[in-house]
Design a protein around this nucleic acid. Structure first.
Lengths: 147, 147
DNA sequence: ACAGATTAGACAAGTAACTTGTCAAAATGC
DNA sequence: GCATTTTGACAAGTTACTTGTCTAATCTGT
């Protein structure tokens, strides 16, 4: 269920943020497909990102992402099938598996970042450099506030 | 799958928008529950909103929201069970049902708007009036741009 | 050293919010 | 007045999660 097509000006500011996030998400999936990663859904990205820093355990990822371990396990299974990640037994802990990026996974992450930067570039074109920086500042303020 | 807890500053601006939208959504569900609408999920709100203007057909709602008629039908069924909306046969069209807000539905919408305004107020407290207005302006610019 | 608690991940099943496909009944268009 | 379209219902499938239960491996206290 998406957003009704109301006059934008009549909406609350939080609603505007939701709308913008929505419109991004749709466009992102399109760009993914265009980049040849048809089996990579937008929801997979947040899992892939922290793997850039090195192999991680599923449990650690689950805690970091704020979801259940099963959610991670299922997503990892899908990503493994698509050759984006591989799971190898942790040499230091026989129970655990290390989830690591494959070269294809790394390539997909590059595409993702490029896509995000393309959107940012589009915003820069719409707003200008100064306003884009201002937007960034405001977003960071809201994200880092105590509440 | 949510966002990894990265340093905020290292992220692209579109990613920041996603993070903010996410953090809102979680907080919103909490406030709903606190207002006694435990059976009302965040996803139901977009359907309820256009009903404020009067009874609507499910098909019209589906088109307006950009989802299938079944998605609307299923959501309406849930909302009807919770006495947020009622479905009455359209006097002018025997096939169609008019979906209308009940008093409880109207009350829920008031709660929603109040919740959104509370978040906005919190943002005002964080940013100050001038910066909040600037944020609004920037969001509206991005939402109304041609692309 | 070893029983007991904890932790890692697998398997099973359930839920929410959608989707497509099919269908009957009612309305509309020549 | 018959063909087409529209409306909503029913059935089933998908995605992205959830909780619950289980086994195997590791850590802890004595």
């Amino acid at each position: 269920m998406v957003d009704p097509s109301w006059p934008v000006d009549a909406r609350t500011t939080p609603a505007l943020v939701q709308m913008l996030a929505r419109s991004q998400a749709t466009g992102l999936a399109t760009r993914f497909a265009a980049a040849g990663h048809t089996d990579l859904r937008p929801g997979h990205a947040p899992l892939l990102v922290p793997l850039l820093a090195g192999g991680r355990h599923a449990s650690d990822l689950a805690e970091e992402l704020g979801v259940s371990r099963q959610a991670v396990a299922q997503t990892v299974a899908a990503l493994e099938k698509g050759d984006y990640v591989e799971r190898v037994t942790d040499p230091g802990d026989g129970r655990a598996k290390l989830i690591r990026l494959t070269p294809r996974g790394r390539s997909a992450l590059r595409t993702m970042r490029a896509t995000a930067l393309a959107v940012e570039e589009q915003w820069r074109a719409s707003l200008g450099e100064a306003r884009l920086r201002e937007l960034r500042t405001l977003l960071v303020m809201l994200l880092t506030e105590p509440g």
